[in-house]
């Protein structure tokens, strides 16, 4: 009797989990199935294509000029990542492990900037970026700095890393201190090797962020030379109109790199995201 009951419970649990998984996955399945249809089928009611039209992908790829946008997005992501990681790691370490006057106050101010509605920052940031380009040695507008530098000082990344760094036992630090190593050495030799998981999160989130940004890249680029995939995809969606089989092919093309990245990092990624929620 008891056994039976726990068995029904297990079955019930699985049923619910599978239902949840289906709801998560159905949009993806529908996307792939539609992307392989003809336009007639796509507007019609059949769920699956009668024939697989893989040429939709080449058509979407060429029409949206995805190759260039991909390259741009990858370049932008790489540069942001290098900048963001080095800056956030330093700052997070500073906030987590070095005592200095005003530390909590400054961190509080940083956190409060996360509440600011983004659209007020667009025009002032545009002005700042233009000016930096005029004063500085390199072009900012229509070049990588405007697309990456403003996002390198990410409060969220600092917050995430700080949470992690703060959990590293003090004994490790004291031991390092006795060996005579300073903060930088401790950071690079002990803390960073331990921090693969949050760094994965930053990697994936930076990737997604660059795949998601729309208004800002459009404003600071004048040519397709640096426009990211989000802009390309958006243009394509507008241009393709009701040709949804192409749009779905484009959507799948846009998602693939992130899916691949996510599958490789998902374990550390989800665990680290989980950790960020502790100690709110």
């Amino acid at each position: 009797m008891k056994l039976n009951r726990s068995r029904t419970l297990t079955i019930l649990t699985y049923t619910l989990l599978i239902l949840g998984a289906l709801l998560s996955l159905v949009p993806f399945v529908w996307m792939i199935s539609t992307s392989l249809k003809t336009i007639g089928e796509a507007l019609g009611s059949s769920f699956f294509p009668s024939e697989l039209h893989f040429e939709n992908y080449t058509e979407a790829w060429d029409r949206a000029n995805f190759s260039q946008y991909f390259l741009n997005s990858i370049k932008i992501t790489a540069i942001s990542l290098v900048g963001s990681v080095s800056i956030s790691v330093l700052a997070a370490y500073g906030f987590a492990r070095i005592k200095f006057p005003g530390r909590e106050l400054i961190f509080g101010i940083l956190l409060s900037t996360m509440m600011i509605p983004a659209m007020v920052t667009i025009i002032p940031n545009f002005l700042t970026v233009t000016w930096l380009g005029r004063i500085g040695p390199i072009k900012w507008i229509n070049n990588w700095p405007a697309l990456t530098v403003p996002f390198m000082g990410s409060v969220f990344n600092i917050f995430l890393l700080r949470q992690f760094f703060a959990q590293i036992p003090d004994e490790l630090f004291d031991a390092a201190r006795i060996d005579g190593s300073g903060h930088l050495r401790f950071l690079f030799q002990i803390v960073l090797p331990l921090s693969k998981a949050p760094l994965m999160v930053i990697l994936v989130l930076t990737f997604i962020g660059s795949w998601n940004s729309l208004a800002w890249p459009l404003l600071v680029t004048n040519t397709p030379d640096w426009r990211p995939i989000s802009v390309g995809m958006m243009n394509f969606v507008t241009e393709a109109g009701q040709e949804i089989h192409y749009i779905m092919a484009g959507a799948f093309i846009t998602i693939i790199p992130i899916l691949i990245l996510y599958f490789f990092t998902q374990k550390q990624f989800t665990e680290s995201i989980a950790r960020s929620g502790l100690k709110g």
């Binding site: 545009f126 404003l219 004048n222 802009v231």
Partner: peptide, 21 residues
């Protein structure tokens, strides 16, 4: 240089007027 749409182009010129570009 293509700016995608009338709206985008107008937004960009509006911003550019403020920055001088």
């Amino acid at each position: 240089l293509d700016q995608g749409s009338y709206n985008d182009l107008e937004d960009k010129v509006n911003a550019g007027i403020q920055s001088g570009d």
